[in-house]
Amino acid sequence: MIVTRRHALRLGAAGAGGLLLSGCDALNDSATFKHGLAGVGRLHEVAQRAIIGDSLAREFTEADMSPVFKANGSLRVADPAYRALLEGGFAQWTLRVDGLVHRPLDLPLSALQAMPQRTQITRHDCVEGWSAIGKWQGPQLGAILAAAGLLPNARFVVFHCADKLEGKPFYESIDLIEAFHPQTILAWRMNDAPLTEPHGAPIRLRVERQLGYKQAKFIMRIELRESLAGLYGGQGGFWEDNRGYQWWAGI
C-alpha cells in the first residue's frame, strides 16, 4: 500500500486526536488527576475571596427583570408532609435553626415576615450558563443567625430542604462570610408575590455572589456545623456530592 503524504497526515491527525481524547478520558477517570484539577480549582476560591471582600452583587431595576424566571432543579416536592404544609399555606410550617447555636429556634413564616425585610432585584446565574433577573424579599440570614447566637466553633451554615433528587435529600451549605453578607436573605417573596412551589416555597436562600445551585429551595431546617465532613457525601451539598460541582460556586 502506498501511503501518500496526505494519507499520512490524515492518519496522524486522526491518531493524535484519538490519543488526545482517550488520554483526556483516562485522566478524567483518574481520581488523582481529578483531585489535582479540583485542587487548582480551589485557587479560584482563595483568589476570589481575596478580591470580592464585602462587595455587593449588582441590584437591577424593575425594567431589567426577566419576563419569565426559569425554575430549575426540583419543581415539585413529593414528600406528603410538605404537601400538607403547602395545602395549608405554610401556616403550620416552621423553620428550625439548630446545631452549633446558643438558642435553637422554630420560626413560623409570620415571624420571618415580621422581621426587617430586604428587597433586591438581582441576577441569578445557573451553572449551566443561563441567567435570569428577579426580585426577592425576605429577612437577612445574618439577623436570624444572630437571634440564634452562634457557638464559637460554628463555621458552616447547612440548609436542609424538603425535596429529594434521585432519592436523596437535598441540602446545601455556605460559609459564615456569605451567610452574614447583607444580600444573603431567606426569600419568601419573589417578583412581588409569595414564592411558588417551583421556585422553592415557602422560602429559598438567596446568596447573590454564588451560582444558582447554591440557592437552596424548600428550606426546612438550618444547621450550624463546624465541618461538612460526615454529612451525606461530605462535600457540602447535593450537587457537590452527586455531580462533582465545586463547593465554591463563585465561578
Binding site: K34, V40, L43, V127, W239, Y245
Partner: peptide, 23 residues
C-alpha cells in the same frame, strides 16, 4: 463526544478542566 472533554456528558468535570487550565 469526540469534540468535548470529557467525552461523556459531564458539566462538572468539564468545568474542572476548563477552570484549572484557565490558570
Amino acid at each position: 463526544g469526540w469534540m468535548t472533554i470529557p467525552t461523556d456528558y459531564s458539566l462538572a468535570d468539564a468545568r474542572l478542566w476548563h477552570f484549572a487550565f484557565a490558570w
